[in-house]
């Protein structure tokens, strides 16, 4: 057991990661490590490779080169424990529209082998303030409610690592507020990688930032950064596309 409790092993270690679709290279030589409890934000314009990086770490894509290890497990040799360690939140909710919140969470609880699913689901629905809509079909939810349920879904199996792919996109201000509140609440207990092009939300919780452009790392910094300082750095490295 390399994983649990070993603080010397970084929670996420990415080395020389590359991805090509046929001859189209979308990611090249990306390396970073995130320690336990760390929060890395990936910035970059559309098509920079942020989502690809997250999908590679999440085992949704196979790397063309390089290696990924999560919670001490190598992604190639041990994909199952990696999948168990990861919670994924994207701008898609990953929820079945024709099922109720209860049914959706019950399904994922079974898929992840969650013990005592009834209690755990009740707890999480309470936390994302959806208990009253528990037996409603998800297609009747607003975008903000859907995203809250998506967070509950991602946290269901108590993952150690959370991957967030543009979690704020398409949310109304109120939903953003709730999302940020939740993220702040669970910040201490998890390790995060978030992809975004929103400056304020990206820097709020991060203790580590990286800028990708055209599939390469153009800037990397460990430690907190002030917003105006970072904005200057960003525009120095990325010509196209603006920060929000």
């Amino acid at each position: 057991m390399v994983g649990d409790g070993d603080t010397a092993v970084p929670e996420i270690r990415v080395e020389g990661l590359g991805k090509a679709f046929g001859r189209r290279e979308v990611l090249r030589d990306v390396s970073f490590t995130v320690g336990r409890g760390g929060f890395l934000t990936l910035f970059g314009p559309n098509g920079a490779g942020k989502t690809t990086t997250l999908r590679l770490v999440a085992t949704l894509l196979r790397p063309s080169s390089g290696s990924v290890a999560v919670a001490g497990y190598d992604l190639k040799d041990d994909p199952m424990p990696v999948r168990r360690a990861i919670g994924f939140i994207s701008h898609n909710a990953l929820l079945y529209r024709d099922l109720t919140a209860q049914e959706n969470l019950r399904f994922y609880a079974d898929m992840y082998g969650v013990a005592d699913p009834g209690r755990r689901i009740g707890e999480l629905l309470e936390r994302v303030e959806l208990s009253h809509r528990r037996y409603d079909v998800v297609s009747t939810y607003s975008k903000g409610m859907l995203q809250r349920l998506a967070i509950a879904r991602a946290l269901l199996h108590e993952p150690r690592v959370l991957l967030l792919d543009e979690p704020h996109s398409g949310l109304d201000p109120h939903a953003v507020e709730i999302l940020d509140g939740l993220l702040g609440e669970i910040r201490a207990a998890h390790t995060f990688v978030m992809a975004t092009h929103n400056l304020r939300q990206g820097l709020a919780l991060a203790d580590q930032v990286m800028i990708l452009d055209a599939g390469r790392v153009v800037f990397s910094h460990v430690g907190r950064l002030a917003a105006d300082e970072f904005a200057a750095v960003y525009h120095e490295h990325v010509r196209e596309g603006a920060l929000v």
Partner: peptide, 17 residues
């Protein structure tokens, strides 16, 4: 078909199954 909307297919592949 229904796995395609809302990215459910990703959700399925993310599971340790």
């Amino acid at each position: 078909a229904h796995e395609k909307d809302e990215g459910c297919f990703d959700g399925l592949l993310l599971c340790p199954v």
